[in-house]
Design a protein around this nucleic acid. Sequence first.
DNA 1: TCTTTATGTCAATTATATATTGCATTTGCA
DNA 2: TGCAAATGCAATATATAATTGACATAAAGA
Lengths: 65, 65
Amino acid sequence: MKNKKMKIARMECDMKQEDLAKAVGVTRQTMGLIEAGNYNPTLNLCITICKALGKTLNDLFWEEI
Amino acid sequence: MKNKKMKIARMECDMKQEDLAKAVGVTRQTMGLIEAGNYNPTLNLCITICKALGKTLNDLFWEEI
DNA sequence: TCTTTATGTCAATTATATATTGCATTTGCA
DNA sequence: TGCAAATGCAATATATAATTGACATAAAGA
């Protein structure tokens, strides 16, 4: 499933995928894959993304049943 | 840094590392490494662990600055 | 003591997250 | 319309998460 929350949070920060990728130290493709879903990033990467966007893990990566 | 929260949550459920490992479909060693820290699990594994222990991502894996 | 149970830890291997390159496609703006 | 920025997407290469097996250690009970 797509990660809409992350895309919205990124756009609220006026960042392109490339900007966020640079900010967290990965490639643009990796960011694209995460937003597109069916991808499984590592915890450290998730945390770094959250901090770059001013969100928490639950905000961006937790889905209630 | 050690993940004390996870160890405490696991013991509250009266599970050994091996029980939790079986419940989430990984090996005992993997669980031990995550609790010991200096390890970087994938997001899906973190989510599966949270659900097995009745916690959220923020409960177990989020540290406030 | 001696066992048993739970955990720590190491080495080698396998599976997969991420990098890199390149090109296609979409979207917004002139 | 058109261009250009932003994103999608595929193939291959590399780094590292996760497996497997084996042995060490610490604690509790007989």
